[in-house]
């Protein structure tokens, strides 16, 4: 399988506090990689290094490298806007813009260039179909996105990310604010999306990681303890710390 990301001795500091310690992790094309670990272990920080979202936090410094194909993410010449376009992100809480469903999806592409109405209609429809939301909203595209349920809003956020035609989707606990039915829909969607996209997901749910990911990486206190094929990781983890964490005997 082709590597999409490769981190090399990646360390990240918030001021003097080291949040990531020499992380070497490869993420493969058209697969789901789950990042797990207790709160504060560095998994979300790691996720955000992949599309330079940590740049927005003051006092952050980075050592080592993150390669996105043959692009060095942290090279000064790298176009951050282009990187974020190619590497979309979905957050913990659905955050639709206070505008119509249609405009939420169209917002990103409109910022890129001018589209005809016909082109934009097709683009919006395609993104909503891919995010498994179209059938539920096709008759009310001009209604406010804030009228949607939590699960629908999260799928709208996924549609919004897909509308930019990314290669990768980064998801930071995308179902933690959702009920089990909405969660199941998002999980089904993730499994469907991996046919065309590379997905990296942070999750606190061991079962979710086990259900939907191909590779699992376990972080602890800024260290990458173990990375393994998911079915092997959850059946026979190699490191005793991984075993203790996933069986709930940690600490």
């Amino acid at each position: 399988m082709k590597k999409v990301f490769d981190t090399q001795n990646l360390s990240l500091f918030y001021g003097k506090n080291q949040a990531l310690k020499n992380i070497n992790l490869s993420i493969f094309e058209k697969s789901v990689t789950a990042l797990i670990g207790p709160s504060g272990c560095g998994k979300s920080t790691f996720l955000r290094t992949l599309n330079r979202m940590n740049d927005l936090i003051p006092d952050v410094s980075i050592q080592g490298g993150v390669w996105f194909g043959d692009i060095s993410i942290y090279d000064q010449k790298t176009d951050v806007i282009d990187i974020r376009k190619r590497i979309g992100m979905v957050f913990q809480k659905p955050n639709p813009f206070p505008m119509s469903i249609y405009d939420n999806v169209a917002y990103g592409p409109r910022c890129q260039r001018n589209y005809s109405k016909k082109e934009m209609d097709a683009l919006v429809k395609e993104a909503l179909v891919k995010s498994a939301l179209y059938e539920e909203v096709k008759d009310r595209l001009q209604r406010s996105a804030l009228e949607l349920s939590g699960g629908q809003q999260q799928r709208l956020c996924i549609a919004r990310a897909l509308a930019m035609n990314p290669e990768v989707l980064l998801m930071d606990e995308p179902t933690s604010a959702l009920d089990p039915i909405a969660t199941a829909k998002i999980e089904e969607l993730i499994v469907e999306l991996k046919k065309n996209y590379t997905i990296v997901i942070v999750t606190h749910s061991m079962q979710q990681a086990a259900r939907i990911s191909d590779q699992t990486a376990f972080f602890l206190l800024g260290d990458l303890i173990e990375v393994e094929e998911t079915k092997t990781f959850f059946a026979t983890p190699k490191d005793p710390r991984s075993e203790s964490y996933i069986t709930g005997r940690f600490g």
Binding site: Q207, A210, F234, E243, T247
Partner: peptide, 9 residues
């Protein structure tokens, strides 16, 4: 309980 690892085994 959806056990994993040694509990599942």
């Amino acid at each position: 309980q959806a056990p994993v690892a040694r509990d599942l085994r």
